[in-house]
Write a protein that binds this DNA or RNA. Structure first.
Lengths: 316, 316
DNA sequence: ACGCTAACCGTTAGCGCTAACAACTTGGCG
DNA sequence: CGCCAAGTTGTTAGCGCTAACGGTTAGCGT
């Protein structure tokens, strides 16, 4: 018991014994067993983070925000990946909860009903991130993707574009991209416009994908004067197509993406985009977990909404 | 006990009771407590993964390889990030070991001596990945970065370039980049050549960074006919500079990077690079953990070396 | 001398689960 | 009919740690 107290620096231990304990620990190469520790204390120093993908450029930055805030708190983030699959998501959530984490951060508001149920029963803070368009379970931090799409549509219309196309993921897998598209269409129809073309793709977003789909779309619809992409990675591909084909941006064609990814910096053109505040969302989510009162019987619910800020760049 | 057996599907349980148990579990919203389970069984279903960074485009793919192989085995990867800091690395390793993982995968061969000691004492399979130039603790999976640099140098020399420059990270932080540079210089000197210029940077690799450094380097050394970058992200920046300035690639300037990142696909030019086999390395590392014999008293040591394959693209 | 407090250290029980073994129940077989 | 093996369920102890509380000692005031 004294050793336990000494190593955790809790309770009263004389500095002499503390020193002795520390030296013995060092000498023996003692590594505490957190399984036992957490089990005994009925607390946890894990924070579960459930995201759809790690390779998509967008979630690593959320993770960085989370890690930055958790650093020094003694809490450790554990990541689970769902591949945009609600079945898999539920399995990952179960896995996470079986470690009795201090809290859970999970991307999106759409979950299997059974997953939602175990989340509600879990008695730990649940933070749904990225999106605020829906019914949060408890805490929620994100932007409105509907608004993001709508505002970009308004912006493009205001810039004078009339033959506007969309390139994005096959929607059922990515709810937020769907919401952006819906908002975008709504924004267009405010001005009496509609999408004049669209290309959907399955599989991951990539520059190559964006370039190929842009090529195809322009071939089929040469009159298009502006393309809105569901992701910056795709719009970069569009820009690459234009560079390779000598299409002048934005004179012949305007381009706009979403996310404000770091890869936009340093390109020959500053691509228009919407900042999704990914890092800040991660930070805030971590804060909510840290601040969550232990007395969990209260109905603490809270939604933090960030503003989807348009960066016009020089491609619109 | 019967319930435990039923839910884990081990031992003999009649299908009738199994069904009853499962229904009860569902009804009660039972989520097993893995802390207790792992503690009691003295085994673990965690695999620790220690990487320098998640935002650098390169490690997520390693993680994907690991996850793919671990999928279905019941093991879960847990990621820790070191920011290329050996102190932090040691802390992360300690954290990891305190969860008593089944095995540990860790990037690089360079560690604090005390970290190396606790790794050796840990009695679980330790897989050092990415690099094979050094003394592995136990298992090792990677490529020789020295060879990668040397072979690229030979290639560039063979292509006729004589005024070759290098752009890369400030080395003390990134041992593998350092080894590539050393190998590269060695390769050049085989042909009686030396670097005619170099630019080092701190902070993360980024397209923007690559573009700026390329601009500066060309300004200071206009005669340079070829640049080798420590990372593809940087060489993309170089290409962007050339596109923006109308520098013809590879006629006026040859470019080569390292890693064979996905962002190379779809650019106006196919950038030359070296494939670092990141996904395969992740897979193999996971395999080694899965195959590791439980009888841990044997001296199972093994190094798996991949070949750093040059992709010439059309920029050299 | 006494009580009292603070500082320190030890004892006990138990976190939720599983390995190991014990015990009971069948059915089959000689 | 007894007996054994296989199938099935129950019992016990303990994984390594910590909350809670109990004891001891020293220091202090009265």
């Amino acid at each position: 018991m004294t050793a336990s107290r000494a190593l955790r620096a809790v309770g009263d231990v004389s500095s002499a014994t503390r020193k002795k304990v520390e030296q013995a620990a060092l000498k023996l190469g003692y590594v505490p067993n957190r399984l036992a520790g957490n089990l005994a204390s009925r607390t946890s120093d894990l924070v579960g983070v459930v995201v759809p993908s790690l390779s998509s450029f967008v979630f690593p930055e959320v993770l960085n925000g989370i890690s930055a805030r958790l650093e020094g708190s003694g809490l450790q983030p554990v990541t689970g990946v769902t591949d945009y699959d609600l079945q898999k998501e539920e399995a990952v959530i179960r896995q996470m909860l079986s470690w009795r984490p201090r809290g859970l951060i999970i991307a999106g508001l759409e979950h299997a009903e059974s997953a939602r149920k175990i989340l509600r029963n879990s008695n730990i803070p649940i933070v749904e991130i990225m999106d605020v368009d829906g019914q949060p379970i408890q805490y929620c931090v994100g932007i409105s993707h509907g608004r993001a799409g709508r505002e970009m549509a308004r912006k493009l219309v205001a810039c004078g574009y009339r033959k506007i196309a969309f390139i994005g993921t096959k929607m059922p897998k990515d709810f937020r991209a769907q919401k952006r598209l819906d908002g975008f269409k709504a924004g267009l129809s405010e001005a009496g416009l509609a999408l004049c073309a669209q290309q959907l793709y399955t599989g991951g977003s990539s520059i190559e994908n964006g370039r190929n789909l842009t090529a195809r779309l322009l071939k089929e619809h040469p009159a298009v004067d502006c393309i809105y992409y569901s992701s910056d990675v795709m719009s970069v591909g569009g820009l690459m197509h234009c560079l390779a084909e000598g299409i002048s941006v934005p004179d012949d064609l305007a381009l706009a993406g979403f996310n404000n990814l770091e890869i936009l910096n340093g390109l020959p053109r500053n691509l228009a985009t919407t900042d999704a505040h990914r890092y800040a969302i991660g930070e805030k989510a971590a804060d909510l977990i840290l601040e969550h009162p232990d007395a969990s019987d209260d109905e603490s619910k809270r939604t933090v909404t960030f503003s989807p800020d348009i960066e016009t760049g020089d491609t619109i």
